[in-house]
Design a protein around this nucleic acid. Sequence first.
DNA 1: CTTGACACGGTACCCGGGTACAGACTCTAC
DNA 2: GTAGAGTCTGTACCCGGGTACCGTGTCAAG
Lengths: 135, 135
Amino acid sequence: MVQAALTIGRLARSAGVNVQTIRFYQRLGLIAKPPRPSGGARRYSSDMVVRIKFVKRAQALGFSLDEIAVLLGLSDGKHCAETKALTEKKLTMVEEKINDLVAIQNVLKALVAECSKGGRKSGCPIIDALAEDSD
Amino acid sequence: MVQAALTIGRLARSAGVNVQTIRFYQRLGLIAKPPRPSGGARRYSSDMVVRIKFVKRAQALGFSLDEIAVLLGLSDGKHCAETKALTEKKLTMVEEKINDLVAIQNVLKALVAECSKGGRKSGCPIIDALAEDSD
DNA sequence: CTTGACACGGTACCCGGGTACAGACTCTAC
DNA sequence: GTAGAGTCTGTACCCGGGTACCGTGTCAAG
């Protein structure tokens, strides 16, 4: 933690993010806005790079920015139980989404297979299946 | 095809959709707008119910409204090859999404497991993992 | 002393898939 | 004749996660 005192542009480049994204995160309250030295540019410590990367990694694991705000609030390491609960909830959501997609995958596979088989009543079996009153 | 001559409200109820959604689909060109009988309300044939349900079923299989517009354009049953190609493309997209989610699932599972194991250096292993420079 | 590169703050716009609201009209029943 | 339900058009708003544009300020180099 060398407190490298970055400008927002350098901070953005270090974190691999746009300047606008940082301002956007500030508006959401994910990222603190350091005090502005009256007439000059705000200065950011290199801890902010870590914090932004934290956001990006959590996002890559499927957490929404709202959820990440909560995670950041728990990030002093003293709220491990809550953090774990949130992660388990997210895991459940991911698994539900996988189940949904697998069901879709099976339907699509069946449609493609039927199409390849050929020789059905009227036109295209895929179109027929979508037009049928199967609900 | 009894041409039941539905009002937009009845059409919406039959198709299980809001009136605004029908108008929205009309704006997108997914659904035709029957001529307005000068001063009266537009009348919809019951074929429109089928068409709207087609849209909803395709949507449930992961097709976007743009893609559904294409599907509807192919839906005379004479474009089975194109339809199949579109479906295969969608299947591939779904499979890619499943793969992404399974990767996420594995990471989340590992984090939860490590958290349950307990006894790590500093605070919460999940927070630590998100804060670490692993990229 | 001017030019260029940044920073600042505010606002508007993008995507996709709708939802909601406002104001005018028509039709039907009481 | 008047209330209520429905329809019409147009426009604005919602979500989430940003992106873009505008006018102004500040700083350093040439």
